[in-house]
Structures are given as C-alpha cells and as structure tokens.
Amino acid sequence: MPTTHDIPTNGRPPALEARDVAVFYGAAQAIQGIDLVVPANRVVALIGPSGCGKTTLLRCFNRMNDLIHTARVEGRVNFHGKNLYDADVDPVQVRRRIGMVFQKPNPFPKSIYDNTAFGPRVNGFKGDLDALVERSLRQAALWDEVQDRLGESAQDLSIGQQQRLCIARTLAVRPEIILMDEPASALDPIATQRIEELIYELKRDYTILIVTHNMQQAARISDYTAFLYMGRLVEYGPTDRIFTNPAEDQTEAYVTGRFG
C-alpha cells in the first residue's frame, strides 16, 4: 500500500485521477495498482529508476498507449469525473485537452508557423490563427526569437528552441493539462534552465505532469513528487517532504543515491 501524504487540492476538484491503473504489454505487466491524484495548477513529478514505468504511466493519461498494439490498460483515469477509458470517449478529443511534450524535440518538417498552427488546424480552428500562433509562441518564451522568421523551417532552430517550439505547438490547442516526458534531457544546462523557468510560469494556467530521471530537477520544479519502482507507486507526497524526510525506506534509498 503506497504512502500517500494528504494532497491538498485547494478545494478544487483534481485535474486528473488515476485509480488502480495497470498496463500490460502483451503478457508482461509494466505497472500495477497505481492510485494517483493530480491537483489542478500544480506540477507533479514522476521519478524512479530506468524501467520503473513512469513513462508508461504518463502515457496513460492521454491515451497514447493506444498507439502501441500490444498495450492494454486497466483501471480508471478520471478527467472531470469521466473515465478516459470508457467506450464512448474519443482518444482524439482526450489528446486535445491533455497535451504532450516529448523527450527528443520533434518539430514537424514544416515552418515555425505551420508547426504551431498544425494542432489548431487539424482540430478545426476557425478564428484568428495568427493571433493564436503568436500567443502560443509568447507563452513558450520563443516569440522574441522567431517573430520575424516564422516562415523558416523549424529544423533550423537550435535544439533548445525546437523544444520550446514543441511546447508552443502543444499550447496552441489550449489543453488543460500538459504531460512532459523528460522534456529537458536532450538539452544543455542553459536550455534546461529556460524550460524549467517556463514550466514554473505555465503552472499558473495549466496543470503539469512531468517525468524526469533527474532528481534535482524534480526537486527544483515540482510541487508533488511520485516515486515509482518496478511498476508500483512507492510513495507520493509534497516534494519537499519526499526529499527531506521520505516515509518509505525505498524512497529514502533512491533519493540518497543508494540505489538506482
């Protein structure tokens, strides 16, 4: 039974709730028995050694595991009280409201403008696309650097800029929740710092769930931290408590570097 410190939800309903979530790849079980409550407008970090299932869990929240043929998801993921895995839920709509930023920046081979506009376009956006693109690029702290070269190819940007473009692209569809899978692991320290600052600012308007293998990063930017090991949720609580006085011995051993 994992230790869950009381997660205050500020009197608002949680942004996301995982209840007894399990994932199988064919016959092999990747994660099991996950109960997790993500409060609104907070940053929740998922940490744990390689292979512990944190990315698998993250992808449960926007039904990206559907794309893997052998994957099977059990349990419930509640979003606004509705289980995302109900038969009448359209995964396409889920992904519009729960966006994702990936580990390796993956801009489309198109212009900066078209990259940012892709999401709104495929979702049938009818309004002022220019304004939306600008707003998204501003929110991603990229506008100043690209405003006079929106027509250039996104591949010409530096890797740190590309990742911010990917964030802008995700913001353009105006999701409520942003899932980030090790967003800074391919970046140098300065670029990493900019992404971390960005996450801190985005917290005001979005809820963010971030997978990271960098404990110091989790400590720096998250409000709550969940520690996973071998597919199970070992401990979940406020970040400062997890890193100064964790309840579980396994958590203690991991954060002090005694294993992993």
């Binding site: 404990m215 110091q216 400590a219 890193f243 100064t244 006085n245 964790p246 958590t251 203690e252 954060v255 002090t256 570097g257």
Partner: peptide, 9 residues
Amino acid sequence: HQPMASDLR
C-alpha cells in the same frame, strides 16, 4: 553533492 533526505538532515 546536493544531499537528500536523511543525508541532508
């Protein structure tokens, strides 16, 4: 070393 948890304490 940025010690954590019991090491930090």
